[in-house]
Design a protein around this nucleic acid. Structure first.
Lengths: 200, 200
DNA sequence: CATAATATATGCCCACTGAGCAACTTTGCT
DNA sequence: AGCAAAGTTGCTCAGTGGGCATATATTATG
């Protein structure tokens, strides 16, 4: 066979996605605290034991979508042309993601709200954030030809991811009754711009 | 009685501290994975059930010291004179903490290393970081007379805490074989300064 | 000071969880 | 086809969080 990915991998990816969606649906229906791992596994047609092979807990299953989104940023950044400055490349990576995701993103909004309400979700999400930050820091160090231990890549990576996080929060907090609700992308650019200016 | 804090509160604080220390000791002896809540409770002379009244899990017990340290920053910031700029006040709050804590801080080093090795600890710590960030953001908004929903306080609070986190990581990563190991305070100032400059 | 009100500690209990193990099934490769 | 590798499942168990009731300690009040 010459399919890029074998049947095995494809099925795994499908199962993972199915579990994620089952977790989302059940959580929205009954609330995170009233959903057991067993219920999610049932809804996804796998055994409780197998669930453990895919995710470490229901929180991870829930956050799977968000995880993929964030990790894709690193990929997108690495794919930016070398002519762009690092910061520009990061900005463009974010733009690409937001355009691809589409603005009126229901799932993103729901997930962000969920994370805000449940400390256990917040914890897992931030832990993942840090892992992404490390990887992004490495990517930045490579692009700029710095040692991986330098401080600048870390600062850039952290500042960037943080900006996106803050933008998402601002977006969620924005009251829908305001006449003009800012788009997520606009907010992100605003926050990123604020970062690019010196603090006084 | 007019003692500022009653016996009740003092005892609670003592117990909390005792549990924290027991958790630290046992973890250093046997490794986090080989320590049960029951063992910690025993070592601190309380029942397993009572442990739950103090901490949500062994991770929280372990991170108690770090938590107090970070929360104290908010207090310190609020106590800075109004003449200082916000950023200056934040810097001085950090200086105060680091001076108070003292440089060759064994516990801080151990905790930072532990967090680096155990994702569950990392998750909890970051979740707490976010809570502190919210509170600090509120404090900044008050000081600058901004609405709590504005973006600038959030950006400042996040950038500040992130700087301290990065500094701690740089500090831990610094090889002790280097002739001159930078102090934590120096690293923090360096990172904070990097933030105060525009990104290119 | 006595006693009521309140907060804390503990024991008992149970549903949920993560993971090791071994048997079994599916997929990939030749 | 046939074997090896990877994935799935059931069984099991120690560990965990938390509700509830009870006992005990602290604080407030008359």
């Amino acid at each position: 066979m010459d399919t890029t990915v074998g049947l095995r991998e494809r099925k795994k990816a499908e199962t993972r996605q199915a579990v994620h969606e089952a977790a989302m649906r059940l959580t929205m229906e009954h609330g995170l605290d009233n959903v057991t791992v067993e219920a999610i596994a049932d809804a996804a047609n796998i055994s409780r034991r197998t669930f453990s092979n895919y995710f470490a807990g229901k929180e991870d299953a829930l956050l799977y979508g968000e995880q993929r989104r964030i990790w894709s940023l690193v990929e997108a950044f690495r794919a930016r042309p070398a002519e762009e400055s690092t910061w520009q490349a990061l900005l463009n990576a974010a733009r690409g993601l937001y355009e691809e995701v589409g603005e009126p993103n229901r799932e993103l909004a729901i997930q962000t709200r969920l994370v805000k309400q449940h400390p256990s979700l917040l914890a897992r999400q931030m832990a993942n954030h840090i892992r992404v930050e490390r990887e992004l820091s490495r990517a930045i160090a490579e692009r700029e030809g710095l040692e991986p231990g330098a401080s600048r890549p870390r600062v850039l990576a952290a500042a960037y991811l943080m900006s996106l996080r803050i933008a998402a929060n601002l977006w969620i907090d924005a009251q829908p009754d305001e006449s003009r609700r800012p788009s997520l992308l606009e907010l992100a650019e605003e926050v990123l711009a604020e970062f690019a200016q010196p603090f006084r």
